[in-house]
Design a protein around this nucleic acid. Structure first.
Length: 643
RNA sequence: GCCAAUGUAGCUCAGUUGGUAGAGCGGCUCAUUCGUAAUGAGCAGGUCAGCGGUUCAAUUCCGCUCAUUGGCUCCA
């Protein structure tokens, strides 16, 4: 038979050889490294016997699918170990994920960290035994009989299509329902580590029982594992929740409450700089600023639909039973800006109207969902609503993307995000407004826009807003958890609900479209992302303290005071540390606080009218004239230079 | 909200098998007037998260609450 290899070379092999034998015959090394095979696009076990001409790719740990197969096998090994140590444990599912694997178990008592150590030991035995993984197939009745003590597996088997073959994998004393593929034997998992224990709902639904999940990861070599663990540890050093507190950007207080951070002077300064930047940029681009109340009567939320669909998420002031009038803090800005729109009549000539607001929002998130500055109960959104005709939607949408792109470049984060086209889940009737035709139109419209500007994006079902599809700008925090940074949404539903209209050229009333968008997203969350991205060392233009003037001798203080005034007058955020100390000590302190520039002056500098400058991350710039230094600062500020 | 871990000085942590607590860093004061990762001395900071229970006695044991952290679910 003729086998086409991944490099395009066609080779002749004897019929009926396994993929592993072919790999071995190609090279000793490949045979050793091989994990799974890709036969005509399908990922298979290496033991798969090949009997006809095909394309064959041998996958190793360097390939995504090879890695996943190894991790998936590791999860089976973990399940085997758990079954040996805790025979009463019921198996749920155990897939590979982006960074390793997990397995969910139903156990009477959740695992402890001591249990993890025991499970790891047992896993080492299973690896050392180098048990082969054997695939076999059963009829539904046979599979149900084999898995009769595993209720979760039975549920899974019963949901498989009637005519599906049911495949299982066996390794020594352990058998699991599994589609595969797997590596040939347990000995392939050379180094692994169990990382954490967590609760997770069966099938991801909070209505179901909570199971015990164990996360782990595995590598081919011990060094790779150590390196990965080291990287994890280093990533956590960048955690905004740690750095932001250490660097005094924010704090929290038990008496204030969850999800309500106290933004300290440094944090407030950076947020102010970002806010001014965004509001100025939006004004340049034709947005009009509004300032609307942070609360409203329940009547408003009854119009918007929030009262019916979002009540649990709102802070309600007063008691509906007792009080005649009940207020609620706003979870969104849209109803308020819509009321501004409705306060006057609009011609098609007025559109598009772009209302923007730096908006404090309040959402009563469930208690376990708060996280640092990323998930809060009160937050500040750079919110805007663009009210336009159907014909204008495309251009407005593209202009918003251009604004977002400009902002991301200014923040230096444009390479750290990806785009997600979030669509409706047609099956989820409760969550979305029932208007299939409008969904079809707006989703198609959005897709066209994205394709026209050749955006790279992923598509996600059942992630849309209840009133329309979204384009989300996504990022990952230091723990690898994904969140939305910015979002742009096309809304076909709320304008109608609010009875918004404009008069078209035929003097007819028409219902406009609304583009909901955030430009820099939620300020607190964006700050969190920036602190992590820059490990606390924010670029000069957004650093709360840009220059520290440090005295080494008392004699130089007067000289530094003059420079402090000059820099301040020029708009530089400068502070004077007048207390004379050893210079090494001052530099260490400024570094710890991530100050971009430290300008030191002792007697030598005052005599020749210079400052000795040290730049964060770049070392000593030597002695330069104060004017020259000021110019550098102004240039870097204006250009939003990132270093 | 659910599963789990945690809560001792501003920060990082030690400690008490039940007899009300310490270190380093940080802060303040004084001395030092200095040259590129730590000058020296001294002082001040804690109802041991909060509330209840057991006990002669609770920071320690038990219960509840609050908060923090990692997941799940949800979401910007």
């Amino acid at each position: 038979m003729k086998i086409t290899l991944s490099d395009g070379v066609v080779k002749e092999f004897e019929n009926g050889m396994s993929a592993l034998l072919i790999a071995k015959s190609l090279s000793q090394k490949l045979g050793k490294k091989a994990l799974v095979a890709k036969i005509d696009r399908e990922i298979c076990d290496l033991s798969t016997i090949i009997e006809h001409d095909c394309k064959l790719e041998i996958l190793t740990f360097e390939d995504e699918e090879g890695k996943k197969a190894l991790w998936h096998t590791a999860s089976h090994i973990m399940a085997q170990a758990v079954k040996r140590l805790f025979p009463q444990a019921k198996l749920a599912i155990g897939p590979a994920i982006d960074t390793g694997f997990y397995y969910d178990f139903d156990v009477p008592k959740p695992f402890t960290s001591e249990d993890l150590v025991k499970i790891e030991k047992e896993m080492k035995r299973i690896v050392a035994a180098n048990l082969p993984l054997e695939r076999f197939e059963l009829t539904r009745a046979e599979a149900l009989d084999l898995m009769k003590d595993e209720p979760y597996k039975i549920e899974l088997i019963n949901e498989l299509p009637e005519d599906d073959i049911i495949s299982l994998y066996k390794q020594g004393d352990f058998t699991d329902l599994c589609a595969g593929p797997h590596v040939v034997s347990t000995g392939k998992i050379k180094s692994f580590k169990l990382l954490s224990i967590a609760g997770a709902y069966w099938r991801g639904s909070e209505k179901n029982k909570m199971l015990s999940r164990i996360y782990g990861t595995a590598f081919e070599k011990q060094e790779e594992l150590s390196e990965y663990l080291k990287m994890l540890k280093e990533a956590k050093q960048r955690d905004h929740n740690k750095l932001g507190r250490e660097l005094k950007y924010f704090t929290t207080n038990d008496a204030v409450g969850q999800g309500l951070p106290l933004i300290m002077p440094k944090g407030a300064k950076t947020l102010q700089i970002l806010q001014r930047f965004v509001e100025d940029e939006e004004e340049k681009r034709g947005y009009q600023l509004t300032k609307t109340p942070i609360m409203a009567k329940s009547d408003l939320y009854k119009i918007s639909g929030h009262w019916d669909h979002y009540k649990d998420g709102m802070f309600i002031l007063g008691d509906e039973e007792k009080d005649g009038e009940v207020m609620a803090l706003r979870p969104m800005t849209c109803p308020f800006q819509f009321m501004i729109y409705k306060s006057e009549h609009h011609s098609y000539r007025d559109l598009p109207i772009r209302y923007t607001e730096t908006s404090s929002l309040f959402r009563n998130e469930a208690s376990g969902e708060m996280h640092g500055l990323i998930r809060l109960r009160q937050f500040t959104l750079a919110d805007a609503h663009i009210i336009c005709t159907p014909e204008q939607v495309k251009k407005e949408f593209k202009d918003v993307l251009d604004l977002i792109s400009f902002i991301m470049k200014s923040l230096g984060i444009d390479k750290d995000v990806w785009y997600r086209f979030s669509k409706r889940g047609p099956a989820n009737k409760e969550k979305y407004i029932d208007n299939p035709a409008a969904w079809e139109t707006t989703q198609k419209m959005m897709k066209e826009i994205l394709d026209e500007i050749q955006m790279n994006y992923t598509e996600a079902d059942d992630e849309a807003a209840f009133y329309g599809p979204k384009l989300d700008v996504q990022f990952k925090n230091v723990f690898g958890k994904e969140d939305t940074l910015f979002t742009v949404q096309i809304d076909f539903a709320l304008p109608e609900r609010f009875e918004m209209y404009y008069v078209d050229s035929e003097n007819e009333k028409q219902c406009p479209y609304v583009v909901h968008r955030s430009s820099i997203g939620c300020y607190e969350r964006t700050l969190a992302m920036l602190l992590e991205k820059y490990a606390g060392a924010l670029p000069l233009w957004m650093a709360p303290e840009q220059v520290r003037l440090a005295a080494i001798t008392d004699r130089s203080v007067e000289y530094l005071k003059k420079w402090e005034k000059r820099l301040k007058d020029a708009g530089i955020r400068v502070s004077l540390d007048a207390r004379s100390e050893k210079i090494g000590y001052k530099i260490r302190e400024a570094r710890a606080q991530r100050v971009p520039y430290i300008a030191v002056a002792g007697d030598a500098e005052t005599e020749n009218g210079t400052l000795a400058i040290r730049k964060r991350g770049a070392g000593d710039l030597g002695q330069i004239g104060g004017d020259e230094f000021l110019q550098t600062l102004l240039d870097e500020n204006a250009n939003k230079t990132i270093f």
